[in-house]
Every structure is written in C-alpha cells, then in structure tokens.
Simulated scan of single mutants.
Amino acid sequence: MMTKPKPILVLGGTGKTGRRVVSRLQQRGYEVRSASRKGPARFDWNDENTWEPVLDGVGAAYLVDSQFSDAATSLSSFSKLAATGGVERLVLLSHRDWVVSADEEKLPCERAVRESGAEWTLLKPAWFAQNFSEESFFRGQVADGEVVWPTGDGVEPFVDVEDIADVAAAALTEDGHGGQAYELSGPRLLSLGAVADEIARATGRDITYRAASPTDFAAYATERGLPEDFVAMLNMLFGWISEGRFAQLADGVQRALGREPRDFTDYVRTTAATGVWHG
C-alpha cells in the first residue's frame, strides 16, 4: 500500500510566487498548507507561537524570508525547527547575489537554510515580469502610460513567475534538486524601453519609457506615496540594472525543468488579454 505524502507548507501562500506554488502542488494531488499572516494557516515571522503549528506534520516547505533586517536570524531558527520536526525538504525563494560591501556576508538567508539539517534548494530569480502587472507601483506606471525608471539603457533578463513556481513545485516534490542553487531568468535581456514597447504593441496603447536620474526618480516616487526607505532601495536596485550587474542569462529553468524559460513576449500577450493594463 502506498504511503500518503505528507502535506507541503507554503509560506507567503497568497503572494506572487506562493499562490502559484500552491496551485501547482494541488494540481499534483498534494495536500497544501498555505500560510501567511491572513491566510488559511496563520503564520507571522514576528510571532514564534505561529511557527510550530504550521510545521506540524509537513514533509517539505517553500520559504520566503521576512524581508526585515533580522530575516536571516529568524529563518535560521525556523529552518532548524522544521528539520528537527521532520521536514525533509526546504526550498527558499532567494535572489541573485547582492553584495553591498566586501565586509558583508553574502546572502545570509541562504546560509541559514543550507545549515538547517534538511535537504535544501535555492531559487535565485531575476526581476519578476509580473511586477508590471500585479499589485505594484510599476503596474500603475504602465496603466498611466509612462514607465519611469532610473535604469538608463541597462538590461535585465526578466523571469516569468510561472517559471519560478514550476521550479519550486518540482524541487518540493521530486528527487534530484537537493543542494541545487537555481539562477532563474528569462531567455532574453530587455531594456526598460523594450519592455514599454512590447506592452504598447500588445495593448495598442501609447506607453513610453522615461529614463530618470536617481534624484528625479526619488522625487517622482515620493510624490506618489512610496516610503523614502523603499525608494532608496529601488534606486539601489535600479542602479544595478543601469550598470549591468545582472545582465546575464541563467540556465536554472533549463536545469530544473528540462525546457526553455517563458519569453517576455508570451507573458505580455497573455497579460494584455486580461485587460489589466487598461486601468
């Protein structure tokens, strides 16, 4: 008689990646525990009383960190608790290697998961294509007809979140992904001007890209209600695009799934059909 698979925990189960991971796991027939501050299973990084209940009985977990300054510390404690409690696989949504200074440890959240005692897989995606269409400041820019980023002529290999979810589901349910760090990108490098042009063609609207200076972008974003610390972080990230820090294609989708990643044009065409960019 076959043993019933243990439930799979998905932190951030209502987020961009999390809800897609939940959907794929359910399609595969797995019992899924979708956890978030307001989700079916309550989970809060700042409330350790919520940790053990969401981990109870699960066999694998999809992790997204808290994004706070103490994220690595919390993630280390949670990952070790998970491994001690019998969770066999941990899949962390991370990001490409951000190095702020030579003295700063690189991606401590990844280290926290690697040292948990469970089998681990790291997902290291490029900028999400869906940032232009789902619940974000950038979707509003597209709806307004002007994409304003201080990225100059810099390019980025935008990745479709559907691909991230496919890789996550595979890593959570299949053998062969343990110990892998998958760099995930789309198949092309695109400037923000090219992004605006693609969306304009698909929607039949006038959408332009304005290359702002970091100072001008800060004023523009602050006027539209973005907190100053968030604007400063965006300027840092946009600066990296401008200087070409991550202007390389990655092969993580190919290695994990044995297929090519989705093209940005496919994402734009599918999204335009929903009418989301028409305000």
Rank of each mutant, 00 (worst) to 15 (best):
L63T: 01
V87G: 02
G13V: 05
F137Q: 08
G29R: 12
S34T: 10
T84R: 12
Q130E: 10
I164V: 14
V22H: 06
Q130H: 05
G186H: 03
E110K: 01
E52I: 06
E183I: 02
A196S: 14
A126M: 05
A273K: 13
P261S: 13
A211P: 13
A82R: 03
E146R: 15
D44H: 02
F43S: 02
T270D: 15
R28P: 04
A196L: 10
A35D: 03
K4L: 09
E198K: 10
T17W: 00
P150Y: 00
P5R: 02
A126S: 10
A61R: 00
E134M: 10
M233C: 00
V148E: 02
R188E: 15
Q141I: 09
T17D: 08
T222M: 11
D197R: 08
T208D: 14
L189V: 05
P108G: 07
R259P: 10
R89W: 06
A181G: 04
A102G: 15
D206Q: 15
T17N: 07
W51M: 05
L190W: 11
R262P: 00
I8T: 05
W240R: 11
S213N: 08
R245S: 10
S77H: 13
T17V: 14
T151R: 02
A181M: 01
E52S: 14
T3G: 01
L189S: 04
T222G: 14
P125R: 04
P214K: 09
S74F: 11
T17R: 01
P157W: 02
L257R: 05
R24S: 07
V159Q: 00
L123C: 06
R259S: 11
V99Q: 15
V32S: 11
V113Q: 06
V155Q: 12
F128D: 02
A71E: 09
D153E: 15
A247E: 14
A129R: 00
G244V: 04
A126L: 01
R89G: 03
N235H: 09
V100D: 13
A232Y: 01
A169V: 06
D197N: 12
S76V: 03
A168M: 03
S23C: 05
S34Y: 10
D47W: 08
V87L: 03
G85K: 10
P214L: 09
M2I: 13
F132K: 01
G140W: 04
K16E: 10
F138E: 09
W45C: 12
I164E: 02
F264Q: 04
D251Y: 11
V147R: 03
K106I: 15
S136N: 08
E198D: 09
F43D: 02
S242M: 07
V231D: 07
F138Q: 13
P157V: 01
L257H: 06
T14I: 05
V159R: 01
T265D: 14
G145A: 13
F137K: 03
S213Q: 07
T274K: 05
G29K: 13
H278L: 12
L184K: 03
A202D: 06
E115W: 00
E115G: 11
D263A: 12
R20Y: 00
A250M: 03
L237M: 13
G239N: 07
